[in-house]
């Protein structure tokens, strides 16, 4: 349970969106542009890290019966902080993300990690776990946003990256594009998993074969 492994697991092996199927609502809604995806990713990571930290600090003092409401209050407080600060200092991003800023409070990733990890681990590990999950969330958002923005708008982070004759596929920017992209990305992740599992199986069969032939020799 090293610090490094707690961080990296959130990136790929236990990526909250692509593996644990958490945080799907914002992943679909906010991924129509890379800029919005990054803004949401940073905000959610902030809330995740801070709430994991605070919940881990008070985990021994909170009576079990009211722990979920307490976690909710803590998470909601940090989301409110993000709301206020973003509205004041990044009003354009605030307008672009719309209702999905307050909706960070019901992002299943945050409550999920609070219950599954922060309530049972030290503050340091909880912060690292939160940070890893947050970065993993942001990465997943970036992948989907990249596909949608390039195909649907011809740009990446607002910069045109397609040849001038390219007709953007408007559907990618709308709701169906989000669902289709998510489905294909998840399917791709599954495919990679299955290939790896098959390769591992082949490896172990071959190894067993070698061991047997050596024994028989």
């Amino acid at each position: 349970m090293s610090v490094r492994s707690e961080f990296t697991k959130g990136l790929i092996k236990e990526n909250p969106v692509l593996r644990l199927a958490l945080g799907l609502c914002p992943s679909l809604a906010v991924s129509s542009s890379v800029e919005n995806a990054i803004g949401m990713g940073i905000s959610a990571t902030f809330v995740l890290v801070m709430s994991n930290l605070l919940i881990s600090l008070v985990r021994k003092g909170v009576p079990s019966k009211i722990r979920i409401p307490v976690y909710i209050v803590i998470i909601a407080a940090f989301v409110s902080i993000v709301e206020m600060v973003m509205a004041a200092y990044q009003p354009d991003l605030f307008r672009a993300l719309g209702i999905f800023v307050p909706l960070i409070v019901v992002n299943c990733i945050i409550l999920g990690r609070a219950e599954a990890f922060a309530s049972k681990n030290t503050p340091l590990l909880s912060v690292v776990d939160g940070f890893g999950m947050g970065v993993g969330f942001t990465l997943a958002l970036l992948v989907i946003a990249t596909v949608r923005e390039i195909l649907g708008n011809g740009t990446w982070y607002g910069i045109s990256v397609t040849p001038s004759g390219f007709e953007p596929v408007l559907l990618m920017m709308l709701a169906p594009g989000a669902f289709l992209t998510m489905g294909l990305v998840l399917g791709f992740v599954n495919w990679m998993d299955q290939r790896k599992a098959e390769r591992d199986k082949m490896e172990s069969v071959v190894k067993a074969g070698f061991a047997r032939s050596r024994k028989e020799a």
């Binding site: 709308l174 709701a175 169906p176 669902f179 289709l180 998510m182 489905g183 998840l186 399917g187 599954n190």
Partner: peptide, 23 residues
Amino acid sequence: IPKPLQGVPIAFLMAGLMAIAFL
């Protein structure tokens, strides 16, 4: 259904098709 798409991915693809219909 192809194995990689079974379960959640195919659900999303179908939601996408339904979203097109609702458009």
